[in-house]
Computed example of a mutant assay.
Amino acid sequence: MRKEQRCLMYNFVSRLEVTKMPSTGQKPGKGTYTCTSCGQSVTLDDHTDTLPPCPKCNGTEYR
């Protein structure tokens, strides 16, 4: 693997580690979040709102 390829791969992996999916109990900010288990959408109207468990399946991970 060439040096340029290694650098690109490292940068890609580094960004993946930083980009965590929001989960129940976090305050990810205003927006609409989709449950990774069932696809149900949850909208947070304020940056201080806490992400609840999914109202449909009680899932805890969102995208």
Rank of each mutant, 00 (worst) to 15 (best):
M1G: 09
M1L: 14
M1T: 08
K3H: 15
E4F: 12
E4V: 12
Q5Y: 07
R6N: 12
R6A: 02
L8F: 11
L8R: 11
M9C: 11
Y10V: 01
N11E: 15
S14C: 06
R15M: 10
R15P: 08
R15H: 13
E17N: 13
V18R: 06
T19Q: 13
K20D: 00
K20T: 03
K20S: 09
S23I: 12
G25E: 05
G25C: 12
G25V: 04
Q26T: 08
Q26K: 10
Q26P: 10
K27I: 07
K27P: 10
P28Q: 05
G29P: 01
G29E: 09
G29F: 05
K30Q: 06
T32P: 05
T32Q: 04
T32K: 07
Y33S: 03
Y33I: 01
Y33V: 01
T34M: 12
T36R: 15
S37E: 15
C38N: 14
G39V: 02
G39K: 05
Q40P: 11
S41A: 15
S41D: 11
S41P: 07
T43C: 00
D46Q: 03
T48F: 13
T48R: 15
L51S: 02
L51E: 01
L51A: 03
P53T: 09
C54W: 07
P55D: 00
K56P: 08
C57L: 04
N58S: 04
N58F: 15
G59P: 11
T60S: 08
T60C: 06
T60K: 09
E61C: 13
R63F: 05
R63E: 15
